[in-house]
């Protein structure tokens, strides 16, 4: 079989690779989902003598690759998995920092300058139940991470906790505590 036939058969996978890489930079992009079908087409292209069988395999592998890339997108956007653990964790820590800053501002509004804020849940101290319902998330490797590049997202219920102190020096006395 001439090289051009095999190149023609693998080119849709390369287009898919470029598209997914460009469109899905933040939550991660599929790799194995187009690489395995592409490798399959190469193997069948070199070793299979029947042209019909080769075409059927190439088309089938491409359809499967489309489904796999689509499924990858659904998995990383569904909230259960992430392909870029460091990017996701950076986002989660930023959200936690926002809660801490908001808690600090609310505490400074609630307590006068010359008083000492007692230790306790910020929700009770400022009378805003939202501070009892924050979340702490982690990206965890699973048994298939080496293959799929996907990390499972583990979520824990948490609350904003104030360790007590003067209103002016609260910024490092407020923490996110898991329930």
């Amino acid at each position: 079989r001439p090289w051009s036939h095999i190149l023609l058969a693998v080119s849709p996978f390369l287009v898919l690779a470029v598209l997914t890489r460009l469109l899905l930079s933040a939550p991660g992009s599929p790799v194995i989902e187009w690489l395995v079908p592409l490798a399959g087409v190469l193997v069948v292209g070199f070793l299979c003598k029947s042209n019909t069988l080769f075409t059927v395999y190439a088309v089938g592998a491409f359809v499967a690759s489309l489904v796999l890339c689509g499924n990858y997108i659904l998995l990383v956007h569904g909230g259960g998995y992430t392909g870029r653990p460091s990017v996701s964790e950076h986002g989660w820590r930023a959200t936690e920092l926002n809660s801490i800053r908001a808690a600090e501002a609310d505490l400074q509004k609630t307590f006068r300058e010359d008083t000492v804020v007692p230790e306790g849940p910020v929700a009770t101290l400022v009378g805003n139940e939202e501070y009892n319902h924050v979340e702490r998330a982690y990206a965890r490797r699973t048994w298939h991470t080496w293959l799929t590049g996907l990390y499972a997202i583990e979520r824990h219920d948490a609350l904003v906790w104030c360790q007590g102190g003067e209103p002016g020096v609260l910024h490092d006395r407020i923490v996110i505590r898991e329930k």
Partner: peptide, 20 residues
Amino acid sequence: MTLHLSLLGLIVVFALIGAS
């Protein structure tokens, strides 16, 4: 995830059948 891994497995199995 099950769909994902089984589809990848199918691609490999069919490639081995086609190559042999």
